[in-house]
Nucleic acid binder design. Structure first.
Length: 811
DNA sequence: AGCACGCCGACT
DNA sequence: GTCGGCGTGCTC
């Protein structure tokens, strides 16, 4: 038996399966999708089985085949579907196959290959001499080489000699980081009759033992965790030990899942009546689910139209068919509120995956999925890789969110992966948003997705009234405050009525750079072409890209002025201003500073929910998903800061943000107002957001995209080159540009090479090429070919090239 | 990516 | 004469 295996060397040169012989003792265990350890050159590496054959492939130099050394799991972590999907991803996104595989699996499964130093049989007390290292090794028999270098730096140089003389040897070991959590449980070994007898036989003073046995007699055949016995019944270890000694019960270690939601009760909420609109959009979706045929829907529903209920119902019907469902949400809106809704509805059938979990917790949630102990997965981007085998429904909530795009290799978009998965499984894909991505809506209007519209809020709640304030007029009226008169007046009004508010600060442009007010000098990173960010906690200025950190200077390095200061996070400034204008106002500020601690996010929101704050003040993180009945005002301090960033999606992002923030207000009994402050009130994204008019925004923005040649009219590929020397990058980028120009279709536009907007990161200069194309069916193949050619002519130069298909960030 | 193999300068 | 610099090529 011969296995094809991809190894954990994520470079193009090794990006293909290698043949290995499977020793007889492993044949019962090894499967396509298995995680294995194999020798590779002089090393040992982790790999994944992509195929199993009797005779091998065209390589088949049987004499030179090495053997698979280990199969790491009893059941393969990769299903056939995931394996195929990873292969497709590696072609689609031009990434090494093994990188795509690793993106699908919990991080603890990624094995680390380490070189170890081991003692041979020749090493004994006599041969150790006065070497501390040899003594250590004669005791422990083996140590990681890196450890040896650290602990015995002066003896490290002698190691090759000892290897030569046969006292030591080196060996590779592949270790994953799987850990399992265990809990002590107590189980009774007696039958009910024996139990009664035992209780009667206990001495009168054996109070605790009697309580334990009584408990077991009341709950026959049940076992109790020690923790529970202690916490709820006040039973300590010693009576249990005595009972165990009598042979009446046993204490055992049972593996348990790490459950971040343990000890939480989820209330069952009654299913609400569906509105006519909800019924109308559900009908086709449920019928697709019934027929188990591929179908893709775009649910375009205004904020507060009750999309989540639609999703929940569709999921429930999928489960009733005996199929599984994946529910994707943007990282930021995977709030406790959302989780609670799912847990209340589907109980123990749900696994939750998000970045707040520890690696161990993620692994446990993943195991619930692969062991078929859950039917629904709720999670951020990577939850699309849930190892289900009978997926009937995939839902993507807030489908326009940019967090569905991964910004590292593999640079995939969860929406695209979901589409592949839905087709493969004959499943239903449902994307939902109040502000769909232009690409998605365009495909829906062309019939590629079925468009479902919910233009009204639940219970016929009116959309909030939107007031646009021209901040230039405020300035003319001598109002230099960051609050317009309108917003000021409305805040005062809400305070009086004891209603709540959400105040949103668009952080782009309000960054926290450090600038001298006297000479205008700004602090910049010495390795990267960007401004340093001020960090209040330890009074430092820090680079977001490379981590370069310096103490915040007291004087300007340029002009010695003392007036060098950071231009605040914004939120802090707004908070101070609010306190000044409205004495006694209770502000709950949510930004990077106040939410960095684990659980802080949740705490602040629940504080606000309980009414312990008048204002929820924050950045992007408060823009979506939140639903507080008493919020009747949403204020946006500076709507246009995101309008002027150099990004073809700037207008779209602004429209989405304004719509989402506005959607926080007046969702329940009380009517809501939205105040948008801006210096460009005439801009179409602000105008259409004001009228809650997605369709008009879509049409205007489509005209722009057509004019400028951006998606959805053109698709993009971004190639970025980086190197320490400018001439070297430039030459490299030009060679690639020439290579591509000769082979691309005439209608394809190649822009550049030009310096990247952030021209230097970590001391490497960056140049980029942008491809804009409409029809280029062989593009992936061409880019793969180009990458191979690039590797060939770039051998000694060490220029790095990254390819981003359908990029979101053009920096 | 690592790692070994191999071919030229500054040391015992 | 040898130690070690890092260019080159390979990994089933």
């Amino acid at each position: 038996m011969i296995a094809q295996i991809i190894v954990d060397v994520p470079v193009n040169r090794t990006n293909r399966p290698f043949d290995y012989r499977v020793p007889a003792w492993l044949t019962p265990l090894i499967r396509v999708g298995s995680r294995v350890v194999v020798p590779f050159g002089p090393r040992k590496l982790q790999g994944y089985v992509t195929g199993i054959t009797d005779e091998g492939t065209d390589f088949t130099d049987h004499a030179r085949l090495k053997e698979v050394e280990q199969v790491l799991d009893d059941t393969p972590p990769l299903t056939k579907e995931l394996l195929d999907m990873s292969e497709w991803m590696s072609k689609q996104y031009l990434c090494p196959w093994v990188t795509a595989v690793q993106a699908m699996l919990p991080a603890v499964l990624k094995g680390k290959s380490e070189k170890w130093l081991t003692a041979t049989d020749d090493l004994d007390e006599d041969t150790c001499g006065n070497s501390g290292l040899l003594w250590e090794l004669s005791r422990k028999r083996q140590l990681p080489l890196a450890e040896v270098e650290k602990q015995f730096p002066e003896e490290y140089l002698l190691v090759p000699g000892w290897i030569h003389s046969g006292l030591l040897a080196t060996e590779y070991q592949v270790k994953d980081r799987i850990t399992r959590k265990h809990q002590s449980f107590v189980r009774c070994l007696l039958s009910p009759e024996q139990l009664a007898e035992a209780i009667a036989s206990l001495p009168a003073r054996a109070e605790q033992m009697r309580r334990v046995l009584t408990l077991f007699s009341q709950h026959a055949d049940q076992s109790f965790s020690m923790q529970m016995l202690r916490d709820e019944w006040g039973i300590t270890r010693s009576p249990l030990k005595s009972l165990e000694a009598k042979g009446w019960l046993v204490m055992e270690q049972v593996e348990v899942y790490r459950d971040p939601y343990a000890n939480r009760k989820f209330s069952d909420k009654a299913k609400p009546e569906f509105t006519p609109l909800q019924k109308q959009v559900l009908a086709p979706v449920l019928s697709s689910i019934q027929s188990q045929q591929y179908a893709a829907y775009l649910l375009h529903g205004v904020t507060g139209s009750g999309k989540t209920e639609v999703y929940l119902e569709a999921i429930e019907k999928t489960l009733e068919k005996g199929q599984e469902a994946i529910f994707l949400v943007p990282e930021i809106s995977l709030t406790p509120q959302m989780v609670e809704r799912f847990k209340a509805r589907f109980g123990a059938d749900v696994a939750v995956l998000h970045s707040g979990l520890s690696q161990g917790e993620k692994f446990d949630e993943w195991r619930k999925i692969i062991r078929k102990q859950v039917k629904v997965v709720v999670g951020a981007r990577s939850a699309i890789f849930a190892p289900f085998e009978n997926v009937g429904l995939i839902v993507i909530d807030e489908e326009h969110e940019s967090s569905y795009k991964q910004e590292e290799t593999p640079r995939y978009h969860a929406r695209e992966v979901a589409l592949w998965r839905a087709k493969r499984n004959h499943a239903v894909l449902m994307m939902g948003s109040a502000t769909p991505a232009l690409e998605t809506y365009a495909l829906a209007t062309r019939g590629r997705y079925t468009l479902l519209e919910m233009p009204e809020r639940v219970g016929n709640r009116p959309m909030p009234a939107v007031h646009v304030v021209d901040m230039r007029e405020e300035l003319q009226a001598e109002n230099r405050s960051m609050f317009s008169r309108k917003l000021h007046e409305m805040i005062a009004d809400r305070l009086e009525k004891q209603e709540q508010m959400v105040i949103f600060l668009n952080r782009r442009g309000f960054s926290t750079f450090v600038m001298c007010r006297s000479c205008g000098y700004t602090m910049r990173c010495i390795h990267c072409d960007i401004s340093l960010t001020y960090h209040k906690t330890n009074h430092t200025a820090r680079c977001h890209y490379c981590g370069y950190t310096i103490a915040q200077p007291a004087h300007c390095p340029e002009c010695q002025s003392e007036h060098i200061r950071f231009f605040g996070t914004g939120t802090q400034k707004v908070e101070a201003e609010l306190a000044k204008l409205f004495p006694g106002i209770r502000v709950i500020r949510m930004d990077v500073d106040t939410t960095s601690r684990k659980g802080a996010h949740e705490e602040l929101l629940s504080k606000f929910r309980k009414g312990q704050g008048d204002v929820l003040l924050g950045t992007q993180m408060i823009a979506k998903g939140l639903d507080f009945p008493r919020v009747t005002l949403a204020g946006i301090i500076a709507a246009d800061t995101s309008l002027h960033i150099p990004d073809f999606r700037a207008a779209e992002k602004t429209f989405q943000l304004l719509t989402q923030v506005g959607g926080r207000a007046g969702r329940h009994e009380l009517d809501g107002d939205v105040v948008i402050q801006t210096y460009t009130p005439e801009h179409y994204s602000i105008q259409h957001a004001t009228r809650h008019d997605y369709r008009s925004f879509y049409e205007d923005e489509m005209l722009q995209r057509r004019r400028t040649g951006y998606p959805p009219y053109f698709r993009l590929v971004l190639l970025t080159f980086s190197h320490e020397d400018v001439p070297v990058v430039i030459r490299s980028a030009h060679t690639m540009a020439d290579y591509l120009r000769q082979r691309l279709a005439e209608t394809t536009i190649l822009l550049g090479p030009v310096a990247s907007p952030i021209a230097r990161v970590k001391d490497r200069f960056r140049f980029q090429i942008m491809l804009k194309y409409r029809d280029e069916p062989q593009l992936s193949a061409l880019l793969a070919q180009a990458t191979a050619a690039f590797d060939e002519w770039n051998k000694q130069q060490k220029v790095l090239m990254t390819i981003d298909v359908d990029p979101y960030v053009l920096l």
